[in-house]
Design a protein around this nucleic acid. Structure first.
Lengths: 214, 214
DNA sequence: TTAGAAATTGACTGTATAGTCATTTTTTTA
DNA sequence: TAAAAAAATGACTATACAGTCAATTTCTAA
């Protein structure tokens, strides 16, 4: 009965995945609230209404749980961002799409952004550097679009890759600020400001009279 | 002999401050390398060539050492930044001064920036939020300068405070990127890019045709 | 219905390290 | 130079918590 075996195995997998996602959900909350160090596996277990031992059936270590939480969200964010960028036409629109996708995901997934931006992570494996790696592809897409727009003289000839990373920095910074302080402005306003600000800087004009100062 | 007593007390204070700064220097290195959690007081003691007990004569806890390290650097950075901003004339120059001061301090104090930007800090007391608080004053100074420049129509009427924070975000993001990756560009190039980028966006032109998209 | 498999449990262990304090070393002073 | 004060020491303690595993409960299937 190969089919039956197959089905049994699948069911087992499904249960396993369900447990894992239960644990990840609980862990996300706890990590966001306490940070990696202060979060205890006992607390995650309690929130998931599971015994600690069960956690260790599905994950090998606290660190692995942490990585699973981040990878889960990073992958979703990456997919969403790439999708929105791909759907946008011009370079400017792709930049808007990038900013808007991040803002949207941040609203929806507060806990994840807390972990990423505020939180004293402490995981030696999935460091900020690795997270950056994960988010590299969207920036690469922006870079390509920007290069092409520059070639068409649609935007000012800034160094494309640095510009793309700058868009990312701008977005990250604004989101971080919204998480840390009580924002006086709406997310929409902040996103629009960024988009307009970037667009203003992209405007193809004569080079400014600016020099390096200090 | 009140003077003698006075002098003795002062000497004691001097020795105490010297020890504290020795400890802070060692701790800065260890925290930057290992992060708050992984750093041990034993290691800090070893690097300072002191016994652990001595550390606890001058500091109450590991957390207090960590806070002392950050406060030390934050205060220095704040002072440097404010000084450079004050010395600059126009709003644009003040923005340049801000960016350049940060870049310069980052070059000189790698370890501090590692702790601030990369490091899984984990200190519950001096959080990222508190650090932001510390750096608020320079941003306020920028805000004031920007407001006045806008009133004189020297720069485009962006919301001044948001713009000032955006300058800070841009700088932080670029510095963070330089710490995490092996930068292909020089610090000077990165700083100049930022300054030119911001200046381009400040240029007082008609409002762009940009709308909120998506 | 029940035997056996699978999943779950939580009390327990081992370890790492923050923080202590009785003892030793160094400095002061008379 | 010796007695007292101050500073430094590092072996030790107390604790918190990650990770384990024998025992128990729940599920499966014949």
């Amino acid at each position: 009965m190969p089919e039956a075996v197959q089905s049994a195995k699948t069911k087992k997998q499904i249960v396993s995945e369900f447990r894992q996602s239960e644990i990840i959900t609980a862990a996300r909350r706890v990590f966001a609230e306490k940070g990696y160090i202060a979060a205890t596996v006992d607390e995650i277990a309690a929130l998931a209404t599971l015994a600690k031992g069960t956690i260790y059936v599905y994950f090998e270590s606290k660190e692995q749980i942490y990585n699973a939480v981040l990878e889960d969200d990073l992958e979703a964010l990456r997919a969403l961002t790439l999708e929105k960028i791909a759907a946008a036409g011009t370079a400017r629109e792709k930049i808007s799409a990038y900013v808007n996708a991040r803002f949207k995901y941040c609203e929806e997934r507060r806990d994840f952004f807390r972990i990423m931006y505020i939180e004293p992570s402490g995981s030696p494996v999935l460091s900020k550097a690795k997270a950056r790696e994960w988010l590299r592809e969207p920036v690469r897409q922006l870079t390509v679009a920007i290069e092409s727009a520059i070639a068409q003289k649609l935007i000012r000839p800034w160094p494309a890759e640095i510009l793309a990373w700058t868009v990312a920095d701008l977005t990250t910074g604004a989101l971080q600020r919204r998480l840390v302080t009580t924002p006086a402005t709406t997310a929409r306003e902040d996103a629009d400001f960024l988009i307009n600000f970037i667009n203003a800087a992209l405007h193809p004009r004569q080079v400014e009279h600016a020099h390096a100062e200090n």
